[in-house]
Computed example of a mutant assay.
Amino acid sequence: ATAPAPAAEAPSQDPAQVLSGIPGMDFSSLPPAAKRELSTVFTDEFCYCGCPHTLGACLKQHTTCKHAKRMARLSARMVADGGPASEVIVTLSKYYASFREPRTALKVDPRMCQGDANAPVTVTEFSDFECPFCGKARPILEGFAKKHPTEVRFCYLPFPLNIHPNAIPAAQAVLWARDQGKFWQMHDALFGQQENLKPEALPALAKSVGLDGDKLAAVLKTDKYKDEIEGFHAQGRTAAINSTPSVFFNGRAYDLGYQEGLLEHSMEDEVEWRANNNAWAAD
């Protein structure tokens, strides 16, 4: 009788073998747990370049693929931050799929933007001055934008949440300051006093940036800017946001996290996508 054919050899699951032998890439500095998670990502997820290989196989067999290397670096960053492979794979799938999904057309005010108006990437942030998460994200987002002034235009959209009692007055104050030519100065002052934004405290902030506090106090007693704030809320609802901060790259929802490296990664992807008429560059 003819002996049965040997079963096909299963791919190695040994992290050391999966992660080694990749030209130009070294993952030796990752902790052992992160290496295990990354090797699972490499063997279970496919490269977004469109080839029929897993990410790990693409890195070793399709060595000219720049997309695989970018995807690998992003994956390594996420597992280094403690992300399990299952979560990383879901995040990667959602992230790359988001480029092909319809974009949200967002209307921004040039007076509330920083950077080159002709930059290839407009980063738009919906934010609430009383939101602690916005306060933490703010220096990272602004630092990222200032580091890339020709690639990134950064725009702010007030999105006061109902759960924050002083969010509406703070939004009124910054819009009034904008009309006096001092939007960013008041923006910074509000975030600098994030835990004391009661209406009676805002005139002093106006004075601190060279504005007339009494005039602001009078504005806060009216419904001035009510319609404009509702317009920002309407944009947010159209964009399906339900929390702050919510960030968009050229109208594409961004949710990788507020780290400079992750923001730069998404910026570079967006530049490539736009330069190639809404497609990835060929290898």
Rank of each mutant, 00 (worst) to 15 (best):
G83P: 00
P6S: 14
A97Q: 14
F144C: 02
W176T: 10
P11C: 02
A189N: 08
A204I: 04
L38V: 08
A234D: 10
N276H: 15
V123I: 14
E45T: 14
A85D: 10
C47W: 06
V247D: 04
A105N: 13
P110N: 10
E272L: 09
A1W: 07
R252V: 03
A85I: 02
G181P: 09
A85R: 11
E125D: 12
D223M: 06
W273F: 13
V219A: 08
H62A: 02
V123P: 04
K147H: 07
W280K: 13
E270W: 07
N118D: 15
T91M: 13
R70E: 08
F46Q: 14
F159A: 10
V88K: 02
S20L: 02
N276M: 03
N196P: 04
D116R: 01
F248I: 01
G181M: 05
K226G: 00
A171Q: 07
L38T: 09
W184E: 06
H187S: 01
A253D: 06
A281Y: 04
L220P: 08
T43I: 03
D283E: 13
S127Q: 08
P6A: 15
P149Y: 01
V18R: 06
N166D: 15
A177T: 09
D255Y: 11
F99V: 01
Q194D: 03
V209R: 05
D255M: 12
L141Q: 03
N250L: 06
K94Q: 14
C47V: 11
L141E: 01
I89T: 10
I89V: 14
L141V: 07
D81V: 11
H148D: 01
E37G: 04
V174H: 09
D26K: 09
N250M: 04
T104V: 15
A1K: 13
N278G: 10
G83E: 10
E37I: 04
Q194I: 14
